[in-house]
Nucleic acid binder design. Structure first.
Length: 358
DNA sequence: TATTCGTGGGT
DNA sequence: TACCCAAGAAT
């Protein structure tokens, strides 16, 4: 009978975690965390910010780079924002890098170099929202707190067969996660559920036969596993089009421009382009008169909320003009914070013009 | 409350 | 190909 279905418990998944926890650079292994040892708050904070909407595989190298260059929060606070942005380039969501730097300075200036050890205290720092505050409090300070990320939402939706669609069901999912949170080892519990979601209770084709909670999983009992969590359909993302202008001068330097500090790709370097216009009508108004040459093909880039299509035109122009940008030699592109969109444009140009800028 | 923030990998 | 999704936060 269904009445004998066991309730899922933190004990069950903590035992699983003790045997199967992933070894991650920022994580205290369960053999030690079980004894009340906690990972360095600086490491936990840095990793959690990087992990916001970003996969473990992607974050790994960035985490190592940052830690090698700035071993302590004081080192990061002493760095220039530009250095931080350059190291961050490619990770995306660049507001995180600005807030990271701002937060490091606040921790050093206002907290003596120590992170607040409570959820409420952490929540006041820039770039630390509900999830990250709870994660640091639990993982680095042993507080009883319940971070809820996408993994944990999915696991809870299945465990309790929550059929209401996200994001409306988020509060319900969180209440389930909170109810299961143990007073002791809350950090390990959260990391255990996240590991479970990442390796077993995956979005598609979960391997329920390996799941420590399989006996108590309502979605499994009702055959709903693959269909949960449900989600309200999202609006289609609009297409925008523009022309990017690849400008070179006689010595081969290229004109790049820094985007405004806030908003899309804030503070990142770009190949100057006209306004990103609605689909059918876009104007081609080159920034300077020159012998513009249209490169074949398009540079396409999808953001979360819009699809961008760039035509690229190239020309050699008078090296005395700057148009509010900076002349940069191709060899020095690596020293600058180039988001993927910019790198795509560079790659596109190289494919059609080659290094002899012509 | 709803948008606006990147990017890479999987299917 | 097109879509989904990933240790979310700020506005």
């Amino acid at each position: 009978m269904f009445l004998t279905m066991p309730d899922p418990s933190a004990t069950t998944i903590l035992e699983w975690y003790d045997r199967h926890a992933r070894r991650l650079p920022w994580r205290m292994p369960p053999s030690r965390s079980r004894r009340g040892e906690y990972a360095d708050p600086y490491h936990v904070w840095l990793s959690e910010v990087m992990l916001q909407q970003t996969t473990v595989v992607t974050v790994g190298p960035y985490f190592r780079k940052f830690l090698a260059r700035w071993p302590r929060v004081e080192d990061l606070a002493a760095a220039d924002l530009d250095q931080v942005l350059t190291e961050w380039a490619g990770l995306g969501y660049y507001a995180r890098a600005r807030n990271l730097h701002k937060c490091a300075r606040l921790v050093c200036d206002d907290h003596g170099g120590r992170f607040p050890d409570t959820e409420v205290g952490l929540r006041e720092l820039p770039g630390i929202g509900p999830y990250t505050a709870a994660a640091i409090a639990a993982i680095a300070f042993g507080r009883t707190a319940t971070p809820v990320d996408g993994n944990i939402e999915r696991v809870m939706a299945r465990l309790f067969a929550v059929e209401a669609p996200m994001p409306d069901s988020k509060p319900v999912l969180k209440s389930h996660a909170v109810r299961l949170t143990p007073d002791d080892r809350a950090g390990d519990y959260a990391q255990a559920v996240m590991d479970l979601g990442a390796t077993i209770c995956t979005p598609r084709a979960p391997t329920c036969s390996l799941c420590p909670w399989q006996a108590g999983c309502r979605a499994r009992a009702e055959g709903l596993t693959e269909t949960l969590p449900r989600r309200t359909p999202k609006a289609p993302r609009p297409v925008r089009r523009a022309v990017a202008y690849w400008m070179t001068r006689r010595d081969g330097h290229v004109l790049l421009r820094r985007r405004p500090e806030t908003g899309l790709l804030g503070g990142m370097m770009e190949v100057p382009s006209g306004p990103w216009a609605e689909t059918p009508d876009f104007r081609d108004v080159p920034p300077v008169a020159a012998d513009w040459r249209l490169l074949p093909g398009l540079v396409e880039h999808g953001f979360t909320h819009l699809q961008l299509e760039l035509q690229v035109k190239a020309a050699r122009i008078d090296g005395r003009t700057t148009l509010g940008g900076v002349w940069i030699p191709l060899e020095a592109f690596g020293d600058h914070a180039l988001p993927t969109l910019t790198r795509k444009v560079v790659r596109h140009v190289m494919a059609h013009l080659g290094k002899g800028t012509r």
